[in-house]
Computed example of a mutant assay.
Amino acid sequence: MNDSEKMLDFLAQLQANNTLEWMHSHQPEYRAARAAFVGLVSDLMQKMLPDEPDLGLINPGDLVFRLNRDTRFSKDKSPYAPAFRAHISPQGRGMVPVGDYLFVSPGHIFLGGGVFHAKMPEITRRIRDQIVLEGSRFEAILAAPDFAEKLTLQGEKLKNVPRGYDKEHPCGELLKHKSWYVEYGIEKDLFLDREAFLDEAVDVFRRIKPFNDFINKALEGLEMPGKR
């Protein structure tokens, strides 16, 4: 069993046995699977260094999220999210600035970027204001062949242009968004081919970079209340 198979096998078992007791009795398997994921993130960061040299200063393990779920406000009381996740950015795994996202679960593997959640009104407001100022540039990024070949804008949207913004603005559809993100799905067979997956991931993250750069320009100087 290679490292990629090891990750998926552990996550599938966790998905089927999502309890504190099961996790506590399978710590060696968890540590081995997590180490395999951290190793994958490390290899990916090495391949990204020509584009993101500051990644060389970051510990890959610091970019990986915990499996624990916050169940306080959820009907689903399962204690763990059966997925390995990493936010790859020279600034760490916090929500801002946005970086490259890697998500691995038994039934869903994807690469992504942007703002996935509409949890902070200040983030949403700043991006909308940036669209008002430079909407044509954002549209050009989304329509660029390198981007559009593999990526499509996603995100929660309102039915109408939000209050406070011109309803007739030429970028009205973009202003309706409450989040702006992209996902690129990875087939299991590709994920299991380490080198092919790494090459594909680097290519996709290069295509996402102008999109992330636009969002990060909107979020410059934003102080987050705490790390995720």
Rank of each mutant, 00 (worst) to 15 (best):
V104I: 14
Q130E: 15
K217H: 12
G112L: 02
F103G: 08
A143Q: 13
N18Y: 07
F110I: 06
S89R: 05
A12H: 03
P97S: 06
L192N: 03
A118Y: 09
M7Y: 04
V38N: 09
G135A: 11
Y30W: 08
I141C: 03
I88E: 05
M45D: 04
A35I: 00
D129V: 08
H24L: 09
D129M: 11
G94M: 00
R34L: 11
F214R: 04
D54I: 00
I109Q: 11
R207E: 10
H117I: 09
I109L: 14
A196G: 10
E220H: 02
L111T: 05
E223C: 00
P145F: 08
E122C: 04
P79C: 11
K157R: 15
D189M: 10
F197G: 03
S105F: 10
I58Y: 01
L153D: 02
R66L: 01
K209R: 14
L151S: 08
R66H: 08
A16S: 13
M48V: 08
F211W: 04
Y165P: 06
P210H: 01
A12Q: 13
S105A: 15
E156M: 04
F110W: 14
L174W: 08
E223Y: 00
T152A: 14
L63D: 07
E52L: 12
G99P: 07
L55Y: 08
L219D: 01
W180Q: 03
M7K: 03
F84C: 05
A12P: 00
L222S: 07
N160Y: 12
G56C: 02
S78W: 04
D129Q: 15
L57S: 13
A83R: 12
D199W: 01
N18K: 05
A144N: 09
I88V: 13
N17G: 07
G114N: 07
I58V: 15
K178C: 05
R163V: 10
L219C: 02
V204L: 01
T124R: 08
N59T: 11
L190A: 11
N212I: 07
W180A: 05
R128S: 09
D199C: 07
R228H: 11
A196I: 03
P145I: 06
A83L: 08
P121K: 10
L20H: 15
Q46L: 13
P50R: 08
D146G: 11
Q27S: 03
E156D: 13
L153F: 02
